[in-house]
Design a protein around this nucleic acid. Structure first.
Lengths: 345, 345
DNA sequence: CCCGGGAGTTGAAGCGCTTCAACGAGGTGT
DNA sequence: ACACCTCGTTGAAGCGCTTCAACTCCCGGG
């Protein structure tokens, strides 16, 4: 393994010069810099990560914690993870992937050992176990998701309440008066992961304001479960003409079932989905939907966490970058699954 | 930040003793060990990862490279990643997530800098760009997937050829004579990612052996694409009674379309899927399927890579753990989507 | 002609850990 | 009685890098 010292010798300069060429923290004359850079290339030098971390007490690693309990929709998680990794590289950082099992311990370990400079937490619960640590640690952290108490925390998420309202507005404008929400699996609500509840709350609020009637039913993604949920909805409220789905696994079964039951989409029933763009565009009936901006969330989380990391590395004043709740505004794209409410009943 | 030296002072022993308590590489008397352990707990000590890596030249990090080109089915990737992370922790290692963008450079960087002790490569292409590096580097590496030349490499994968044969055997036993494969997106074949081709080859071989006729059509996951693919299949070969699907996104649309066309599953058409268990069980018709053992693959990859890492760390003889191709045998689970071929035509 | 100051470069002191060689104490075998 | 182990513990030498303080030049101003 080539070391900095060897590069220095090869280039005929001191070790510190090589270090400064690498970091750019001191001015180096052009000829020297070029000589050093040539030596680096010729010897195939790569700075040793451990030594670097030890000397600088910065690892250039971001920890990405995703507990990944069951019932979470993996593709969205994955998309966020990819965006995080990609964006982190743009800041010369790598991403350490931490999953469930260890729970809050993992965070403690990673932060305590200096393995990571910063953390991004996914799948945040309302009363998340990891929050006490996050509040105490000097390492910058960003949550993707919203806990119940956000004081002092930096969070990124889609504005799910606004999402719910937006869906209702769209349906209301089309003349629908009775709507239903086919939601995430019951386990998701029980776990009190905020996003599912927030959507439903948004829907309910706006429905109330507009004098509409609404029903909410959790539903896991299996065909049977969707069938049962639909049956109960139409049984209880046969006049339902609008459905909001927030559960990607349920979408295609839902469309299939409606078709089977002779309910045409959108002539008899309008469907609005909350899901990634890609999903909405590829279904049997192209879905009017509010996109879940997974990539944007991942990217933004990294930008925010890096801003704080940079502040505490340079100025040393972490409060120069104040905590901040970043709720992305939802956008509704109209496709083929929504239309005017059937006039006659 | 608490250091080893402080722990030593607190426990009234030397630094090396603390280190040996931590690593267990020398015998330490019970009373001393306990004293040290108490100090560690009381002070809340966490060994510094950088210092450790520098001194021991082992980082306890495994790099997981997933290029994640488009068209890959994310949930399976994700499941593998989770299994890798979980299993790595059992070996006291963490996982560094490397995604596309940088390409083979990422591997060079991570290995060159000593950031990772070992690598697991996913989404392996037949002529993978990363192979030259993998063959040269002293760091242990395991591929998930099969390149065309596997000499000197350790690989883990489902035996997709056997999977293809297994599907055919099942259909043949039920009396089907004309079958079709609804495959992955055309891009997947063009990229020459082995697994998709291997399944089709397995199907074709066995079909030939048994004197069956078979058709293969790539297909992306969108509803339209599935519709087009199905139309072409039945247009070209109306006597088709068996379908093998290897494309999870296509499954639910496929079932929906067959239903719409009045083709009953399994009375008129039998469907065998190659997909994760979980997917097969939750569809509108429970699918006879060959499972993609994502978890097992991830776990096995880590076990193999750790075995090699351990060998080169201890004995120093890396050849004590020879390279090895581990093809997991497929298992077919019969569910409700396959039945006897319709006798009359 | 001297002094002050910036630019470019360097030596050396760590960063916190692992590990080697060595040492004393207490057996065991002869 | 001796040599010779083994066991438990230790001091010290790095691992490869960053960064501080200092030093040398060289330039411009007084």
């Amino acid at each position: 393994m080539v070391t900095l010292a060897e590069v220095a010798r090869h280039a005929g300069v001191s070790a510190s010069t090589v270090s400064y060429v690498l970091s750019g923290k001191r001015t180096i004359s052009a000829p020297t810099r070029e000589r050093v850079e040539r030596s680096i290339r010729e010897l195939g030098y790569h700075p040793n990560a451990g030594a670097r971390a030890l000397a600088s007490s910065r690892s250039n690693i971001i920890a990405l914690m995703m507990p990944l309990r069951t019932d979470m929709y993996l593709p969205v998680m994955m998309e966020i993870a990819i965006a995080v990794a990609t964006t982190a590289r743009e800041h010369a950082h790598d991403v350490l992937l931490l999953t469930g099992q260890e729970g809050p311990e993992a965070a403690r370990r990673v932060v305590g050992s200096g393995l990571a400079d910063a953390m991004i937490l996914m799948d945040v619960e309302l009363e998340d176990q990891r929050l006490p640590l996050v509040r105490v640690t000097p390492r910058p952290a960003v949550l993707i998701g919203l806990p119940s108490d956000t004081t002092g925390l930096t969070c990124v998420d889609l504005d799910f309440a606004a999402t719910g309202r937006l869906c209702v507005d769209h349906l209301a404008k089309l003349g629908h008066r009775d709507i239903a929400v086919v939601g995430e699996a019951a386990a998701v609500y029980e776990r009190r992961t905020g996003f599912a509840e927030r959507t439903v709350r948004g829907v309910r609020e706006r429905a109330d304001e507009l004098g509409m009637r609404m029903l909410h039913r959790p539903c896991d993604g299996s065909y049977e479960s969707v069938a049962g949920t639909l049956a109960r909805i139409f049984d209880e409220r046969p006049e339902t003409t609008g459905i909001v789905v927030q559960n990607e696994a349920a979408i295609e079964p839902l469309l299939g079932l409606l078709r089977q039951q002779g309910r045409a989409v959108p002539e008899d029933i309008s469907v609005v989905a909350v899901c990634p763009e890609q999903v909405a565009a590829g279904t049997s009936v192209a879905l009017t939907s509010v996109a879940i901006p997974a990539q944007e969330m991942g990217r933004l989380a990294v930008e925010l966490v890096m801003a704080r990391a940079r502040a505490s590395a340079e100025g040393g004043d972490p409060s120069s970058v104040p905590p901040r709740i970043e709720l992305l505004p939802p956008a509704l794209t109209v496709r083929a699954s929504t239309g005017p409410a059937p006039a006659a009943r």
